[in-house]
Write a protein that binds this DNA or RNA. Structure first.
Lengths: 216, 216
DNA sequence: TCCTGTGAATTAGTTCACAGCG
DNA sequence: CGCTGTGAACTAATTCACAGGA
């Protein structure tokens, strides 16, 4: 059923399809064509069908997809039919915003601990959590049975922290620090680099006319 | 000099190379090989050379790249040798974290206004800024000569807001709302979807063993 | 010799186009 | 018929491999 390797771009689109399916679900629609889904997700119907085809045949020819059934399939494919225990490493403003971000909770990601180095922040209450000393990282990861870490620190300490997280058993990391983390086989890292996003926009602004005219 | 179309993946890597070049610069290195840069950026030396070759020949055979000179070239290519005037649309926690985020300022992105719908937040002081009523969007965009908008709102109002931004003359948007925005030709949108990032990690966790073993 | 710059080869990803089922 | 599912065709991106200048 599962091919050797699914492209990251496909997985991202599946997550996007799921979001729209759930919107349609809420609106009471119960059948949807690949064309309609593609339109909402900003892609083509062939792409939608191809993406889904890697995992099975979920549609009805001549009809489309059952919204409920396809949403359920996608949640299953994406591993979203369980909850994840998340540790937040770093307690700056961005970390604070992420802890509050309802999208995480709705999707099954529960922040179970927040770690920080700065003594001024240790002991603060964050919602139901207390910010803990990062020295206790290993203990917390084990006691809380952490599945996934969100790393929200400056660049400098990031590699050392990820080494400790991996040693303690964490196998998935969402990294906001602007460094390329080195991790062993079997550990997944996703990077989010806000500066890079802005810089690609800067590039687009600067080179906008290149796509139309020859001269610069 | 500039080919018709540069892949987004290439532009992102250029931004990453620049970050590391600046680190090396700060450490006093003045020459660097494509191999060293590739290692830091998590790619291959051939990829580094190919990425750069789209824009020119910046290295010295047998030696490598002059760190200062290449950094300057990349800043020029990326359009980072000027400052950008940014409007933040939405004044939630994430917006607050982004406004404070030093990386933006260091890279030349100045937040010149923050807009919000919620009357409770309008009038709050954010650093040197006062949160303004989103009704004044058009006026603010024009008076502040905004180059770029960061959209940090729920999904619902996002399309309407982007329509107004575009009508007012904004041509680049960094979108955190979980919708696929429809914009006319010539307007650039970059999406950052934190839920999607977590969901691809969830997928990776679930399918980790598939890469090695046959059975599931 | 060392390391860049780059066509050529390869691999990955997307789109086409149509057979086949409801 | 309508719309899915999917090989085949195509396009894009990466990697190879080597010529050539410092």
């Amino acid at each position: 059923m599962l091919p050797r390797k699914i492209a990251d771009s496909t997985v991202r689109r599946l997550a996007i399809y799921l979001r729209f399916l759930e919107e349609f679900e809420a609106q009471g629609a119960d059948t949807l064509s690949s064309k309609a889904l593609a339109h909402r997700a900003g892609t083509t119907s062939a792409q939608v069908r191809k993406d889904l085809s890697f995992f099975g045949s979920f549609g009805k020819r001549g009809l489309g997809y059952d919204v409920h059934a396809l949403a359920r399939e996608l949640r299953d494919i994406l591993g979203l039919n369980r909850r994840y225990r998340v540790i937040m490493v770093g307690a700056g403003r961005l970390a604070g915003a992420l802890v509050q971000f309802s999208g995480f909770n709705e999707r099954g990601f529960d922040v179970v601990a927040v770690l920080e180095k700065d003594p001024a922040k240790i002991g603060q209450r964050w919602g139901g959590l207390v910010v803990e000393d990062v020295r206790h990282l290993e203990k917390v990861v084990k006691q809380q049975r952490v599945d996934l870490a969100i790393l929200v620190t400056p660049a400098d300490p990031a590699q050392g922290l990820v080494d400790r997280l991996v040693a303690a058993g964490v196998t998935a990391v969402l990294n906001f620090a602007p460094v390329q983390l080195q991790v062993p086989e079997g550990v997944e890292v996703k990077n989010v680099n806000l500066a890079v996003e802005l810089e690609t926009l800067s590039y687009a602004i600067k080179h906008r006319s290149d796509n139309r005219a020859e001269s610069a």
